[in-house]
């Protein structure tokens, strides 16, 4: 009863692994670098007017998901980060409240992504404040959806 349990029988079964293709549930639009570049100009315009709520919403709209366009994804991340770091702590809750539930999910994804990047570590205090305020409003759902969703930002 004991010994055969230690054999990794799944390694011998070619069908035991699911491919990324099989795990990709919903087809997402391919977002190009230029799309994000265009978006970034609009976001910056909104930011300079002090319209944080709309600029965050725009930065979170239509994020690039595909894993083969890492530079585009990082570009969008830096855009989101730029908005997040320009907001004062007192305003955070109102801005999160103004987002719809899908955008809140995407925001949490970007917060996790940002925390995993070494270059954004200087902002960790701000990121944690955002995370705290967001979860206060949204509850635990977005964290679980961040973990289960295959569409990584």
């Amino acid at each position: 009863m004991e010994d055969w349990r230690r054999i990794d029988i799944d390694a011998l079964d070619p069908e035991s692994r699911l491919t990324d293709e099989q795990l990709r549930l919903v087809d997402t639009d391919l977002v190009s670098y230029d799309d994000v570049l265009l978006k970034s100009r609009q976001v910056k315009a909104l930011l300079s007017k002090g319209n944080y709520s709309d600029s965050l919403r725009l930065a979170l709209t239509n994020p690039p998901y595909h894993s083969d366009i890492e530079d585009t994804r990082l570009f969008n991340l830096s855009l989101v980060l730029e908005v997040l770091t320009s907001v004062k702590q007192a305003q955070m809750s109102n801005i999160v409240q103004a987002l719809d539930i899908d955008q809140q999910d995407i925001l949490v994804k970007y917060l996790y992504k940002a925390m995993s990047q070494s270059q954004s570590q200087i902002h960790s205090g701000i990121l944690l404040a955002w995370f705290e305020k967001t979860i206060e409003i949204t509850g635990l759902g977005p964290i679980l959806r961040y973990m289960s969703d295959r569409r990584l930002v």
Binding site: S148, D149, R151
Partner: peptide, 8 residues
Amino acid sequence: FVSSTGGW
């Protein structure tokens, strides 16, 4: 059917 955000 699938749920859009995945999960068992």
